[in-house]
């Protein structure tokens, strides 16, 4: 428990620094008001947008990275599920059916990744890179490369409605994160995932079905990406196969790595990833507020993620000696 708390320190510090900067740079940043039975404000927006994409993707990505893998296909899977859900409601399906179809296909694509990695033995980078390209192609093929607009109140409500004053995505995602975290830590599943990432061979010899574990985490990652894609489409009442999820895989990796999950696998912190996602979203919004063009925004993000990785690297830690070690301990 102590270890988890200490990995949370740095992302929280960074988050606070960013928030303080914003409070000074843009007045009214923390202004939150109650209107039409729900909360409005910049901070609520950060939570809402943070939950919709980075937090969801990071949930799945955390478990994938904990097993020592990576999933580069999440952005493309988002596009597929968003497109499928949009086409389903246009074809007359109910909101529930459309979401189920999108999530089902997304989970299936995630499982395909898992089969290629766990059963066929491909490197995770390659298998998911193939899915990244083929998945985007699939989304374009399904929609004929056209934007799919739809008019379905209940689907739009998923992204823009509110429950008890809070935006639906925030409630949905925090619930999912809570349940996932609780299940993983209350059962042996979390331990199996960490064992697989730590030493796959030893885990297998110890009787853990590492293949099944890996299959499951990629399936879960596909599911999370699928939900994120549906919410993205619901938010603007249209699915854009070329834009949904584009370059979001780095956002997810950013959130996970910033949250203290090591890229080498073997340990993970879901709470850290949630904080990492909030950090990312705050950074994105800060850049936006400072009039940085959206297309340029990846530059500072890339710099921050590299910096975080350097902080994690053994060589740099060795140089700083005891001081860093005591932080890590």
């Amino acid at each position: 428990m102590k270890e988890i708390r200490s990995t949370l320190v740095w992302p929280l510090v960074a988050l606070v620094v960013l928030l303080v900067f914003n409070a000074v740079a843009s007045p009214g940043f923390f202004h939150v008001e109650w209107k039409d039975g729900r909360l409005f404000g910049t901070v609520v927006d950060i939570f809402n947008q943070g939950a919709r994409v980075p937090m969801l993707l990071a949930l799945g990505m955390t478990l994938v990275i904990a097993t020592g893998g990576v999933d580069l296909s999440v952005g493309s899977i988002m596009a597929v599920s968003g497109a499928v859900a949009a086409m389903q409601v246009n074809a007359g399906a109910s909101m529930g059916q459309a979401v189920a179809a999108g999530l089902g296909l997304a989970t299936l694509l995630g499982l395909v990744n898992g089969v290629l990695i766990a059963r066929v033995g491909l490197q995770p980078i390659i298998a998911t890179l193939v899915m990244m390209v083929a998945g985007r192609g699939l989304a374009m093929l399904l929609t004929g490369s056209q934007m799919v607009p739809f008019a379905n109140r209940s689907l739009t409500w998923l992204a823009n409605g509110s429950v008890g004053g809070l935006p639906v995505p925030v409630v949905l995602v925090l619930l999912l994160a809570g349940v996932t975290g609780w299940l993983l830590r209350r059962t042996a599943a979390g331990l199996f995932i960490e064992a697989t990432g730590d030493n796959e061979k030893a885990s297998r010899l110890a009787g853990i079905q590492t293949g099944g574990v890996r299959l499951a985490v990629y399936g879960f990652s596909g599911f999370c990406a699928g939900l994120s894609g549906v919410l993205e489409a619901a938010n603007i009442s249209a699915a854009d196969p070329a834009r949904i999820g584009d370059t979001r895989e780095l956002d997810a990796i950013f959130a996970v790595v910033a949250g203290g999950t090591a890229l080498t696998g073997g340990r993970f912190s879901l709470a850290g990833s949630v904080v990492g996602a909030l950090l990312l979203q705050t950074l994105t919004l800060t850049l936006y507020n400072q009039n940085v063009a959206p297309a340029v925004a990846p530059v500072p993000k890339a710099v921050v993620i590299l910096a975080v990785c350097l902080l994690h690297s053994p060589r740099l830690r060795a140089r700083f000696g005891k001081r860093t070690q005591s932080v890590a301990a």
Binding site: I125, K301, V303, C309, S313
Partner: peptide, 16 residues
């Protein structure tokens, strides 16, 4: 020199 996985460094490089 920092033993960071190549895919991550070059992914960040891609965005950069």
């Amino acid at each position: 020199y920092f033993r960071i996985p190549a895919f991550l460094v070059t992914l960040a490089g891609m965005f950069l």
